[in-house]
């Protein structure tokens, strides 16, 4: 089965003065449907850059990125929104909900982008909010929701586009431990029960045990197995079993 995301020899250089900063150096990575993969590593290591490139938000300097079998690294910037809309749902650290829209309308917005009619979008948004346990909060504004509730609305919004891939950037960073685990259970369910490929960038060691696989990024490259520590026993780092302890 082809991977949902296939990255090959990926490099990314950020222009900086007359030279450039190499942010990604020859990364190879596959993410499969039904898998929850976590990207870990120190700040500035390139995790978010990799997530952004896999999410078709940033373009690679060289290498190949295939989303659902389609090469996207060579696409023009104006063609990328359509790929995001079709294949990718995002969950952000800061939730990024629209504060002037209700929870339901936030979800409807995604459906509107997909071209769903207003009536159908309303119905579907209600269903999605019920799936994340927030059916009764349809008319609540984000300001009236707790952090965990906001993140669940964001997950419902990400799911509204029915994407094969969910990319999450520090989804538990702004949440307390219990709420963070609830959100992670939801993410795991998306991968295992609904067959989504879920990629999560995290610094949160409390949630690592939800991962099917952990990939450590260091200096723009995937760290060798021997460089990785602080990973819960039994987990795989880039496909290799490890028994270590601290992540960042």
């Amino acid at each position: 089965m082809q991977p949902a995301i296939a990255v090959r020899q990926l490099t990314k250089t950020y222009a900086e003065g007359s030279t450039g900063t190499l942010a990604m150096r020859g990364v190879d990575l596959d993410v499969h449907a039904g898998e929850l993969l976590m990207l870990v590593g120190p700040s500035g290591s390139g995790k978010t850059t990799l997530l952004s490139i896999m999410g078709c938000i940033l373009t690679a300097t060289s290498g190949s990125v295939r989303i659902a079998g389609r090469e996207v690294a060579s696409l023009r910037e104006k063609d990328l929104p359509a790929i995001r809309l079709q294949h990718i749902g995002f969950v952000f650290q800061g939730f990024n909900l629209f504060p002037t829209l209700t929870a339901g309308e936030n979800v409807e917005l995604m459906l509107d982008l997909k071209g769903v009619s207003a009536a159908a979008a309303k119905k579907r948004a209600q269903e999605l909010l019920e799936q994340v346990g927030l059916g009764v909060k349809y008319d609540s504004f984000p300001a009236d929701l707790s952090g965990g509730q906001k993140q669940r609305v964001a997950i419902a919004r990400a799911l509204a586009g029915d994407p094969g891939i969910i990319l999450a950037d520090e989804p538990t960073a702004a949440l307390d431990s219990r709420t963070g685990r609830t959100v992670m259970e939801m993410m795991r369910e998306l991968a295992h029960k609904r067959g989504r490929a879920v990629v999560i960038v995290t610094h949160d060691a409390r949630v690592l045990d939800f991962a099917d696989r952990i990939v450590k990024i260091e200096d723009g490259a995937i760290a060798k197995a021997s460089d990785v520590d602080a990973v819960p026993p039994g987990l795989l780092v880039h496909g290799m079993p490890l028994a270590a302890a601290s992540l960042a």
Binding site: G55, I57, P81, A82, I83, R84, L85, Q86, I88, F90, F92, N96, F98, P99, L109, M110, L113, R157, G161
Partner: peptide, 16 residues
Amino acid sequence: IREYGTLKAMGAPNSY
């Protein structure tokens, strides 16, 4: 502006 950034990240074309 952040909301518009979110919209674009979600896949909204500039025209939207």
